[in-house]
């Protein structure tokens, strides 16, 4: 390799220390090896038969549908929350930290506890769920609505934090310039802010979708498990593990493949630059 070329690349990207490479290798192994073991042990021959089973198809359809709906809701509600959170940098310390903690809590809460919390709020004897049933006869547990609520509760914080990070990293002077040039607030948001934070929004949406797709604890606690209504693919997989571990491995493989396909497809479509 020519000396000058080598020097130029040295200047633009400093070489990583061998320690970084080793740590990164261990990190990757930790993430990939368990999944590789799953793939090695999977009864591949059983896959076509499993994918043809009506209960698997309905669980997969339900999972994809609810995760997509949850992501759309999280986008509609989470992006505004992220905007407020980003602006809170100018607030006094206490409300700023409280708001951030409130957004982060569902991330550290064990999902099953989140499910119980949702029951205590929206269950038939819950703080809101009780009056709701008395007044309109509406019950939320054991419905597909409950699945979506559980997924939004668990997955939306991922989106909010990702978008908020992108907003804070973006240069606000572009917005100010657009405003001085006569753009309305809506136009500034649509034409300047949104394109600036688009990579953050798409990364957040992808995180949110995959988290919703894999959601188990809060869903099974709050929504229950009934085929075609509330039994998502992770729940079906867990139940199958009790009866036929081999089939459960195959099902988890389906979930894994679907996640990877969706991730790759979404990234290419939404942010063409990031995969290049």
């Amino acid at each position: 390799m020519p000396r000058s070329a080598g020097r130029r690349s040295d200047r633009s990207t400093p070489r990583l220390s061998p320690l970084v490479w080793i740590a990164a290798g261990v990190a990757l192994a930790l993430l990939v090896l368990p999944l590789a073991a799953l793939a090695v042990r999977a009864p591949w021959a059983q896959l076509p038969e499993l994918l043809g089973r009506s209960e698997v198809v309905s669980a997969l359809t339900l999972s994809l549908g609810t995760a997509l709906l949850s992501t759309l809701i999280a986008l509609a509600l989470g992006v505004p929350l992220a905007l407020v959170l980003a602006r809170s940098a100018a607030w006094p310390v206490v409300p700023r930290r409280v708001l951030r903690a409130l957004v982060t809590v569902p991330l550290v809460l064990p999902p099953v506890v989140g499910g119980v919390a949702l029951l205590l709020l929206l269950g038939r004897r819950g703080l809101l769920g009780g009056p709701l049933e008395d007044a309109w006869g509406v019950t939320i547990p054991f419905t597909t609505t409950a699945v979506v609520i559980a997924q939004v509760f668990v997955a939306m914080p991922f989106l909010v934090l990702a978008v908020e990070g992108a907003i804070r990293a973006s240069d606000r002077r572009f917005e100010q310039v657009a405003a001085t040039l006569g753009a309305s607030r809506a136009t500034v948001f649509r034409r300047v802010t949104l394109p600036l934070v688009a990579p953050g929004v798409s990364a957040g949406a992808v995180l949110c979708f995959t988290r919703a797709l894999g959601e188990f604890g809060a869903t099974v606690t709050f929504a229950g498990s009934f085929p075609g209504v509330t039994q998502t693919l992770p729940i079906a997989t867990y139940l199958e593990l009790q009866r036929d571990p081999q089939a459960a491995i195959a099902l988890s493989l389906v979930l894994m493949v679907v996640s990877v396909v969706v991730l790759v497809a979404l990234r290419d479509r939404w942010v063409p630059g990031t995969t290049a």
């Binding site: 205590l120 269950g123 038939r124 004897r125 547990p141 054991f142 606690t221 498990s225 009934f226 867990y238």
Partner: peptide, 20 residues
């Protein structure tokens, strides 16, 4: 006519205990 098919007996008990 079940509304939910739980993964273990404790989960059934919890749903009943909470009045769900």
């Amino acid at each position: 006519a079940p509304d939910t098919l739980e993964q273990d007996v404790t989960s059934v008990l919890t749903k009943v205990r909470l009045g769900e």
